[in-house]
Design a protein around this nucleic acid. Structure first.
Length: 517
RNA sequence: GGUCCCAUCGUCUAACCGGUCUAGGACACCACCCUUUCAAGGUGGAAAUCGGGGUUCGAGUCCCCGUGGGAUCACCA
């Protein structure tokens, strides 16, 4: 058992876009598998035909790809989901809706062995019972106490219920939760947990509505069939862990039962509760990896479209609920594979901090070369109709990258390297453009134009000594030069700007400022 | 409400099996330095063990009780 190959799965339900918490779950699964040389499998849990959302499945796959997470099984090279078994995808199909024939016999096996039973109560009847109990301030539970008074294969004569399951469709199969047993469980990050079965209920395993298994049945059967060794999933599943343990026992699969690890939830940055789409809209940050347009046309922003680098996004997620135990915070995916460990996953929920997320992105931006940045920023320049040499764009990016958090910040920060300022900031004009200034600026221009040799260094030093030697006020002159060149009073050094835009453009901009101001 | 999980700076977190803990780091914040401006960078600062009992020579670390937060109680996953 211990020498089984590590196999983990990410099993999302295609009911909408994948939440960043979901991506984190997928990431942890992936890291765990890769570190142990195991397999990471993607399985689509679409047993709820009511909630199926078109496009969600592709969204999930694309999100993982963007993050650099490629499943070993369950997704073809072209991003489609394998429907027939092959060498690489031996357990196909990987979509539960296409595996319905598999589950039926397992459900029946449970009934035959006395671990489950057919139930004929309609949803309305049960709703009515719940209402009655609620009125008496009690809760109705379908369990060992009540199943004897309800309509099921335990209480009805055999001929009657057998006839019913053959002729009718309104029946379900329920798990027969044993009475008064202590379920002893172990969680990889939470330790030992015990629950008395009396507090549990007879969960539906087979749904009458669409003749499909519920999550619980399909999940256990598939994890068993796909030889999953560890189940790493969200904390919301912890309450159903006892049921899952009981199911493994009922099937007699305890020997190969996977180990479980329940991850704490991602919480909203302010206030209380788990992170939701609403929080993103309200506080102005994405909660989804990619932009999503719902079938109704509702748009949700994505990290990718908001300008986050996938490496930064992965890094952010990795450190939300896990830490390396060292003071290192910047990790690329490959590095995470080496250092990740479930032992260091934090038990408590993590409030998402959008400010720190921005910082991570800025860090990754600074690590990029000017050329790489230019390749990205060049696209936006082209859209804006700016025709600039890639080498020039690269130099601009290199000079300006430590001022940006996102590539989308670049235009606002660098536009004056591509076009002369359309206007001059009036408060800056008022502050620096005093009476004596224009002639100093004009002199500075003449100086620069006749500077020999003209190098970046000579420009820098020459400009400086010109001002000092003439006894001019440094701040006033420099800021006036900058104002003339870029229209505002912040940005890189004046010499850097001149050097990049070139002497001719410099002269033109100075002349224009002298003429207008 | 029942059941289960969780609890260190504002936030993410560190502190291996209880002992240099003056409780460390990062984001954000503040100050200073660098500087022609704005960033970046450097230095420093403010900032936390939820409360109460125990166990122990010694508790952030173990136990109990409170309190707070979260999850879950569907023919949804």
């Amino acid at each position: 058992m211990s020498e089984r190959k590590t196999r983990v799965r990410f099993a999302p339900s295609p009911t909408g876009p994948l939440h960043m918490g979901g991506v984190r779950t997928a990431l942890y699964n992936y890291l765990f598998a890769k570190q142990r040389g195991g397999d990471f499998i993607l399985r689509i849990e679409d047993t709820d035909s009511q909630r199926f959302v078109p496009g969600a499945e592709q969204y999930i796959i694309e999100s993982l790809r963007w993050c650099g997470i490629f499943p070993d099984e369950g997704v073809n090279e072209d991003g489609t989901i394998p429907e027939v078994p092959s060498e690489k995808h031996p357990h196909a199909p990987y979509r539960q809706s296409q595996r319905r024939s598999i589950y039926r016999k397992y459900a029946e096996q449970l009934v035959e062995n006395g671990y489950a039973y057919y139930a004929f109560d309609t949803a309305e009847e049960l709703a009515e019972l719940r209402k009655e109990k609620e009125a008496a301030k009690e809760t109705f539970t379908y369990n060992w106490e009540t199943r004897g008074q309800l309509r099921n294969s335990l209480t009805l004569p055999e001929e009657e219920w057998k006839k019913k399951i053959e002729t009718e469709t309104g029946w379900t199969i329920r798990f027969k939760m044993p009475e008064n047993r202590i379920v002893k469980m172990d969680d990889l990050i939470r330790g030992h947990i015990e629950v008395n079965t009396n507090t549990l209920d007879d969960k539906v395993l087979w749904k009458s509505a669409d003749q499909l298994p519920t999550y619980h049945l399909a999940n256990i059967v598939d994890d068993h069939l796909m030889e999953i060794t560890e189940v790493i999933r969200g904390e919301e599943w912890l309450p159903s862990l006892p049921l899952h343990y009981m199911l493994y026992e009922a099937f007699g699969w305890q020997e190969t039962q996977p180990r479980f690890a329940h991850l704490s939830l991602l919480l909203k940055p302010d206030g209380k509760g788990k992170l939701s789409k609403r929080d993103g809209d309200r506080l102005g940050f994405p909660v989804f990896p990619l932009k999503w347009v719902s079938p109704e046309g509702e748009i949700s922003r994505g990290y990718r479209e908001d300008g986050y680098l996938p490496e930064a996004f992965v890094n952010i997620l990795a450190l939300l609920g896990w830490n390396p135990g060292t003071e290192q915070e910047i990790f690329r995916l490959e590095e995470l594979v080496d250092v990740f460990s479930l032992d260091r996953v934090v038990k408590s929920g993590a409030k998402f901090n959008p400010e720190k997320a921005k910082w991570f992105n800025a860090e990754y931006l600074r690590m990029m070369s000017g050329e790489a940045l230019a390749a990205e920023f060049g696209k936006e320049l082209a859209e804006r109709g700016i025709d600039a040499e890639p080498e020039y764009v690269a130099k601009v990016c290199e000079l300006m990258k430590n001022r940006a958090h996102f590539i989308t910040d670049f235009w606002g920060l660098t536009h004056y390297f591509f076009q002369a300022p359309a206007e001059y900031d009036q408060t800056v004009v008022a502050k620096f453009w005093k009476d004596e200034v224009p002639q100093m600026v004009a002199q500075a221009k003449d100086y620069v134009m006749s500077l020999e040799p003209y190098t970046k260094e000579s420009l820098e030093e020459g400009l400086h000594s010109l001002i000092v030697n003439n006894g001019w006020p440094m701040g006033k002159v420099m800021n006036s030069l900058r104002l003339s060149l870029v229209g505002i009073n912040n940005g890189p050094g004046v010499a850097d700007i001149i050097w990049l835009i070139g002497r001719d453009e410099f002269a033109a901009r100075i002349d224009r400022a002298l003429a207008t101001l």
